[in-house]
């Protein structure tokens, strides 16, 4: 993957302000490539990095990272052969069983993921599944609430990377487990909305194994000149399809061996 940056520093700042404004005011904007058709993935990450710098300067705490576009189906749909990553801050975290406001989101969707909490720092390139498992303190079930700031969830890879991989909110919960006590590949997941099953799968849907997705994330971080510190919280990618939610909806994600995570959505 090329991380070449073609945009000027001015353009990066301009696009970052556009994304930040869309995130803050929860309104949809056209994808960035409509105006910058030559935008590369490297440009997308340059905008995302600028966004992260701004949030941290405003006092947001960086708590971890997320892997996105980790299923074959999504990658094919996007016409890419690499997943993407985005950063997670304390402002995005919501408590288990909380009522989550949707008035500050554009068109939220939920997906089930296995989350990793790291006890050791990891740095790429060359990070492997085993490196990830060795560095993992525990895994836990999680629901990610994604929210593209692009109209109709229509975007290309450069735009979605600039929009921080559609990151919006996340909820960790259930039961923390040591990764070496589980077969993370065959772990089953059921997503229920208002008591009805709306998503199902096994964790292998994420790049064959969720720890492979974390290794890939660490290797992309290396290309950005970053590493994954100890204590990081990592969302390894959606096992189920992303399902739209509205105020009044109640969501429960049930995981084999890891318990469940629940939440409600409010105005």
């Amino acid at each position: 993957m090329s991380m070449d940056i073609t945009l000027s520093r001015e353009d990066v700042v301009r696009l970052c302000e556009r994304i930040e404004g869309a995130q803050r005011r929860a309104h949809a904007i056209p994808k960035l490539t409509d105006e910058y058709p030559g935008m590369t993935i490297g440009d997308g990450y340059a905008v995302q990095t600028e966004l992260r710098r701004r949030y941290v300067a405003q006092g947001h705490r960086l708590v971890g990272w997320k892997a996105g576009l980790t299923s074959k189906a999504k990658m094919r749909q996007m016409g890419v052969d690499v997943p993407s990553i985005g950063f997670l801050t304390d402002r995005m975290a919501r408590a288990e069983n909380a009522a989550i406001s949707t008035s500050d989101l554009v068109h939220p969707r939920v997906e089930c993921e296995v989350a990793f909490v790291m006890k050791k720092a990891l740095a790429g390139p060359g990070c492997t599944r085993q490196d990830v498992l060795d560095a993992t303190d525990h895994v836990l079930p999680a629901v990610e609430i994604i929210d593209s700031r692009f109209s109709g969830f229509k975007f290309d890879l450069a735009s979605v990377v600039a929009d921080n991989g559609s990151s919006a909110r996340f909820v960790g919960g259930g039961r923390a487990r040591c990764a070496d006590e589980l077969d993370l590949r065959t772990l089953g997941v059921v997503l229920e909305k208002n008591g009805e099953i709306v998503g199902m799968g096994a964790a292998a849907a994420v790049l064959g194994h969720p720890a492979d997705a974390v290794a890939m994330l660490v290797n992309i971080l290396a290309e950005l000149g970053e590493s994954l510190p100890a204590g990081s919280f990592v969302l390894s990618g959606g096992i189920t399809e992303a399902v739209p939610v509205r105020p009044g909806d109640s969501v429960v994600a049930r995981f084999q061996e890891l318990g469940s995570v629940s939440m409600r959505f409010a105005e």
């Binding site: 074959k72 089953g188 997941v189 096994a202 292998a204 049930r254 084999q256």
Partner: peptide, 19 residues
């Protein structure tokens, strides 16, 4: 909740779950 992983000729084909 037991997951089901289906591989065809060594490649991941699809996943499912008992539910």
């Amino acid at each position: 909740l037991a997951g089901m992983v289906l591989e065809k000729n060594g490649e991941l084909h699809s996943t499912g779950v008992g539910a």
